[in-house]
Simulated scan of single mutants.
Amino acid sequence: MRAASLLALTTATLLAATGVATAHEAGWRRTGHTTVENRISGEGLTTLRLPGHAPELVYRNGATIPQPLKDEGWGHVGDPDSLRGYLFDVYQDTRTPAPATKMYLVTKPDGTATEFVHPLQPDEPAVNANAQVAVTPDGQWLVSGPLGEIDRLSVSPAPFLNPRGPKTAGDLPVAARIHLDHHIRSAQGCDFVGLTRLICATSDPYNDLYPTNLQLLQIDLARPLTGRDVTAKVREIGQVPLVSTCTGTFTPEGVDYDAGVLRVEVVPPSPCNTVTDVYSFERR
Rank of each mutant, 00 (worst) to 15 (best):
R2H: 13
L6G: 02
T10V: 12
V20P: 00
A21I: 02
W28S: 02
T31W: 07
T31E: 11
V36R: 15
N38C: 03
S41C: 02
E43Y: 07
G44K: 05
G44W: 04
L45N: 03
T46A: 13
T47R: 12
P55D: 14
L57T: 15
A63S: 10
T64S: 11
T64V: 06
G75W: 09
R84P: 00
Y86T: 01
Q92C: 07
D93F: 04
T94L: 05
R95M: 08
P97G: 14
P97A: 14
T101H: 13
P109W: 14
P109M: 13
P109L: 13
T112I: 07
T114G: 00
V117G: 01
V117N: 03
P125I: 12
A129Y: 05
N130W: 12
V133K: 02
A134F: 02
T136G: 01
V143M: 13
V143H: 10
G145M: 11
P146E: 14
G148Q: 13
D151I: 01
L153E: 06
L153W: 10
S154N: 06
S156P: 01
N162R: 03
A169C: 01
A169M: 01
G170L: 08
R177D: 02
H179A: 02
D181Y: 09
D181M: 10
H183N: 13
V193Q: 07
V193K: 07
R197S: 09
P205M: 09
D208L: 07
L209Q: 09
L209P: 00
N213V: 08
Q215E: 15
Q218Y: 03
V230Y: 06
V234G: 03
Q239C: 04
P241K: 12
V243W: 02
S244A: 03
T245W: 11
F250R: 09
D256T: 03
E265P: 00
P268T: 11
P271E: 15
C272R: 10
T276H: 01
V278F: 06
Y279M: 07
S280E: 15
E282Y: 00
